[in-house]
Design a protein around this nucleic acid. Structure first.
Lengths: 228, 228
DNA sequence: ACTTTTCTTTATAAAATCTTTACACGGCGG
DNA sequence: CCGCCGTGTAAAGATTTTATAAAGAAAAGT
């Protein structure tokens, strides 16, 4: 579902543990460190989708870290801090922090604020599209394009094709395909499969007599190949 | 300088006065109201750059107002509330609020959070008008024009169309549309959908028999296409 | 209270899709 | 060479899904 990457920079080991457990159980990819230097290094080497930054770091002031990050990092930064003074909050926010939570914080609220912060950036560029050379399959929009033209597929045809596309290169057995598309009660209706494979080929293959994408594995099943 | 327009929706007159003075002295253009209904009207007639919304309104729940605003309003909404319960905060944030301040708040922090919220949208600058060739859908003004003539849509028709317009190109399932427009209890009333799709097509399609915008995906749902 | 608009429900025709049947093709072993 | 098996294709029903009109119910506006 989620899988956004979050970097935690905090020197209190209990807080780090708590955050790791909480965030991971909510399907975030968590990486954490206790030092400013290490945090900056990680952020630069593989930029996360969001950073949780403690202001009270031992080796460098959190405000400085924030400024350094903001020189290039454009995704959300949430501050976690024991300091509840207005000056701290205002200066952090004005230095580019997206939010500021005072410790101890409530985990439910933290998660909601993380979701809110991610919503703005995540909404844009996140649709999984499978590229097959002259054909593109967009699973989110549920569209199949060939040479940039929309191909009209029925519900069953699409189900079949998306199974193939998601397991490109693998041989999918008759049994497996029948069970996934039609249900467990249809595993001997191989004829269905032949009919629909033929229809799919007619729609997506350039030369339906020499299929380049859907390959027959006689006696076993079919295999999908994205490109040459 | 600044000059961003801020709409304050709060029924406590002292808070409104305080906010008006504070915000105006910081070069914001402030408009304020004490009722949900009036707030929604103002927001629609000349959309502000940011909305400060109190959850404890007399005529309508702040949560409802938030949801209604978020159907079309994409700029920041900050919640001001006396409620500090985690449930209130989480549900507000998940319903699209960008921030949540508990009353009584510190004005310096409020201003910093406003600046922070405005900073994010300043970069984007997206006007919420969707161009579909001969048709324009203005989500902020809640209007639909075809060949420069206003098309009169009922509330339900508009809700449906705006869902389509906001997710152009994607297939929206029957379930999804029914849940979003009519509510979770109506997900098997597919006939509603058919009736309203037909009405919408009659109003927005040039040739209702050959729909160019609302495409049927049999057995799955519908897809909206802006242009060829 | 009355008119108008909008929503819900019902009925039916039309279209799309799925299922089933029929038959052709080609490889392989007897 | 012939029949068998797995496969591919076309096309005829059968079934499901969709489009549309229209009437009754409810809501909104005056």
């Amino acid at each position: 579902m989620n899988n956004a990457a979050i970097l935690v920079i905090d020197d209190e080991v209990q807080i780090r543990r708590l955050l790791e457990i909480t965030l991971e159980s909510n399907n975030f990819n968590v990486e954490s460190t206790d030092s400013a230097k290490e945090g900056l290094r990680i952020a630069a080497s593989h930029p996360p989708d969001l950073i949780l930054l403690d202001l009270g770091l031992p080796d460098e002031s959190g405000h400085t870290v924030l400024k350094k990050l903001r020189e290039w990092y454009t995704k959300p930064i949430l501050i976690l801090s024991a300091q509840s003074g207005e000056d701290d909050i205002v200066s952090a926010l004005d230095n580019g922090a997206n939010d500021y939570l005072v410790k101890p914080f409530r985990t439910g609220e933290l998660l909601a604020r993380i979701r809110s912060a991610l919503r703005s950036t995540l909404a844009e560029d996140n649709n999984p599209v499978i590229d097959c050379g002259e054909m593109q399959i967009d699973l989110a929009a549920r569209t199949v394009k060939k040479n940039n033209e929309l191909i009209k597929l029925t519900a069953t045809e699409y189900k079949l094709l998306s199974l193939f596309a998601q397991q490109e290169g693998k041989v999918l057995t008759h049994q497996y395909l029948l069970r996934e598309v039609w249900g467990p009660g249809y595993i001997n209706q191989s004829q269905y499969l032949r009919v629909f494979i033929a229809q799919l080929r007619k729609k997506i293959e350039t030369d339906s007599n020499r299929p380049a994408h859907i390959i027959t594995e006689s006696g076993v099943g079919y295999r999908f190949i994205a490109k040459e």
